[in-house]
């Protein structure tokens, strides 16, 4: 026991003080749209490669003369194929961890509109009751990787508890319901009941691409179309699974505390590395 105590006391502080910094350069991150012009459906490499059909390219021109491109981050699983194979640099790799948004449509990136930024302060009026304390209940309906990352955001490195966030074991104690996974038929009743058991005010956080849109599972026979198919959702956190900082940012957004973070660009582009050849000929299909 003494040995154990000595060991623990000798450990240095593991917690990172820089909150929600960009991902390391080795990480894949999510796609972002740049100002570079897209040549249109003649290329279509991104849309053909995207595993979840999250990208649409149309030949209509934007004001700056590019073809119109839309990427739904709510369906994106972060495979990296679109930005690795985009010949014009219209789609680039984004290493920001601040990707969560309050509205579903804010996750759809378009190059014919000015990007919609999240509101600077809280979403529900001037006062957010959860600003300094948020007790959250996590309901998983997915494959467990999202859950592992939520658990990781509570570990000594990310330490989400320092913001007053606690994971609780009953909906009765909970202010927030964090949903992971695509919410297939089997979990819809249980999830609704959990929500109904929570006292108001309450917020719902859809964590992970499955919980936003069903991800790779959407449009199947199990009605797995994401959390807002069943419940009103207040915050959406994209990623499959989202990294702990991305989850922390989403929770801070739900608390109305994102403005306390060190200011940072919304999109942090990574300088393109060598393009990776893709095994599948893009012309087929």
């Amino acid at each position: 026991m003494l040995k154990l105590l000595t060991y623990l006391l000798a450990q240095k502080k593991a917690t990172l003080s820089d909150v929600c910094p960009p991902l390391e350069a080795s990480a894949r991150g999510l796609p972002a749209l740049t100002e570079e012009a897209c040549t249109g459906t003649g290329c279509n490499a991104c849309a053909k490669l995207c595993p979840t059909d999250a990208i649409a390219v149309v030949d209509e021109k934007t004001d700056s003369g590019s073809a119109k491109v839309a990427i739904d981050l709510g369906a994106c699983i972060g495979c990296g194929l679109c930005f690795q194979n985009c010949p014009t640099g219209t789609i680039a790799q984004n290493l920001s961890t601040r990707n969560a948004r309050r509205k579903r449509e804010e996750l759809v990136l378009k190059n014919d509109e000015v990007a919609v930024l999240p509101e600077a302060n809280t979403g529900n009026g001037s006062h957010n009751p959860f600003k300094y304390s948020l007790h959250a209940r996590v309901v998983s309906t997915g494959c467990s990787a999202c859950d592992l990352e939520i658990a990781a955001s509570g570990n000594p490195i990310f330490d989400i508890e320092r913001f007053g966030v606690h994971i609780v074991a009953s909906p009765r104690f909970a202010d927030a319901l964090i949903v992971t996974g695509p919410v297939g038929k089997g979990m819809q009743t249980a999830l609704k009941r959990c929500y109904e058991a929570m006292a108001e005010p309450r917020v719902v956080i859809a964590a992970g691409t499955c919980a936003i849109s069903g991800g790779v599972h959407r449009n199947g026979y199990t009605d797995a179309q994401g959390a807002d198919n069943v419940l009103p959702v207040d915050v959406y956190i994209p990623g499959c699974p989202p990294q702990p900082w991305q989850l922390v940012y989403g929770v801070l957004l739900a608390m109305g505390r994102q403005s306390c973070l060190k200011p940072e660009e919304d999109v942090i582009l990574c300088h393109p590395t060598q393009p990776t050849p893709h095994p599948f000929p893009t012309q087929s299909r």
């Binding site: 595993p51 979840t52 699983i77 495979c79 998983s140 309906t141 997915g142 494959c143 467990s144 990787a145 999202c146 996974g181 695509p182 297939g184 038929k185 089997g186 979990m187 249980a190 991800g215 790779v216 599972h217 199947g220 026979y221 199990t222 797995a224 499959c240 699974p241 599948f280 087929s284 299909r285």
Partner: peptide, 27 residues
């Protein structure tokens, strides 16, 4: 409770994209 229809989905997407679904069977 977390039945998501993975096996059927794999037969529905183009086979070149099936690996994304297969690895999400349990990520």
């Amino acid at each position: 409770y977390v039945h998501r229809g993975v096996e059927k989905k794999i037969t529905e997407v183009p086979w070149q994209k099936a690996h994304f679904v297969a690895e999400a069977a349990a990520t």
